[in-house]
């Protein structure tokens, strides 16, 4: 099994090709300043034995998948998060249940992980 980053996975999407990656990266750049200015504050705490951190990100963040302008980590690994139009948040671990803040989203992911390690998107 090989391990690839989310950015690589995005670029490798069936039929999506490089155009998609470029398009979303451009979107992230365009929206980051406004989001960062109005975004939630950073946090850094230990929750149920896991270190969770969140902070506004710069230059589109670690990867170009979501235009969030805010980055969350669990034990140093990035948790993919996204902000909804109404200001609520979701993550790749809880993608269908909006929560009020990135911190609440990180905590929900910790509960869901039940101790498991977050990894960059792995494919067969």
């Amino acid at each position: 099994m090989s391990t690839i980053t989310r950015r690589h996975a995005l670029g490798a999407a069936a039929g999506a090709a490089a155009g998609l990656t470029l398009a979303v990266a451009a979107t992230a750049r365009a929206t980051t300043p406004a989001r960062a200015a109005a975004g939630p504050p950073p946090f850094d705490e230990v929750y149920q034995g896991r270190r969770i951190q969140g902070a506004p990100s710069h230059a589109g963040g670690h990867h170009g998948g979501h235009g969030g302008g805010y980055t969350v980590h669990i034990d140093g690994e990035e948790l993919h998060v996204m902000q909804n139009a109404d200001g609520t948040w979701i993550s790749v671990i809880n993608h269908y249940e909006p929560l009020a803040t990135p911190r609440a989203t990180a905590r929900a992911a910790v509960r869901e992980l039940q101790g498991a390690v977050l990894v960059p998107l792995a494919t067969a």
């Binding site: 999407a13 069936a14 999506a16 398009a23 979303v24 979107t27 909804n84 139009a85 494919t123």
Partner: peptide, 28 residues
Amino acid sequence: NGRYDTFVATHNDFIMSDTDSGDRVGHR
């Protein structure tokens, strides 16, 4: 035969890239 996981990967790619303020196709 490996085909199943290509569907999982495609769905995940779209769910991570579909955003309310940017390009959106599969969701929202």
